[in-house]
Amino acid sequence: MSSLRELQAGFRAALLDEAEARVVSEIIDDGLGASARLAVYRHHVFTSLTDALGTTYPVVCRLVDRRFFGWLADRYVRAHPPASPCLFEYGGELAAFLAAFPACAHLPWLADVARLEWAINGAQHAPGATPLLADIWRSLDADGLAALTVQVDRSVTLLESPWPVDAIWRANQAGADGAVDLVAGAVRLEVRRIDDDIVLRALPAGSFALRAALAAGRTLQEAVDRALLAEPALNLAREIRALLDDGMLVLPG
């Protein structure tokens, strides 16, 4: 008999790769064969992970239809099994997977819809944080201000696409008619959680560049440079004020 470690590696190969040889000889074959018994476990692994992906990516699932989604989820699970038992965190590579998946090549916007759904999922599960409101800002003296570390609210994702993914997403919510004008063109979106609501909004180029740079951990100076490059006539004072008013900046912790 193999060691427990070998047995578990063999079991994984049997479930994910259909390579049963290593583990079949370890299983008692009474009445029902070892393969049929392994299939019970495999079926649950794949259906439950497909359900988890469908929960995180309901619009992608609707766009390709449920049966096709089941097939692509099967391929995805084999290539990217979960690294954590928290299934709300599972599926972060789906957008990249879809972008390279030949069977979806005729749906060029699909990967960006997946990026949007991943951002929404992240916003739903991100830890809450204390917004850095203007009165905290004002209460600090020069030293306190200099020592202040801020970060962008972790529920925030800034997402840019050549496709109107927000319109595609809205058109595929319950009760919507599914009609989208695909030539509506590129979008720059901010996705975040405010209180208990997920908020999607389109931003102009300068605001987007400023916020995306801050969210990526750039300094204020770098973020401002990028914002002005994207939109030379940007009203910077108004943009910085909006960062505070929107509660975008939070205290680390």
Partner: peptide
């Protein structure tokens, strides 16, 4: 049961052999 091997989480309560080795683990 177990569900993690090689860092991959196989979303199921997978069976153990009931051996002294498994008991120690």
């Amino acid at each position: 049961s177990w569900s993690v091997t090689g860092g991959a989480y196989l979303n199921h309560l997978l069976p153990l052999p009931y051996t002294d080795e498994a008991l120690a683990v």
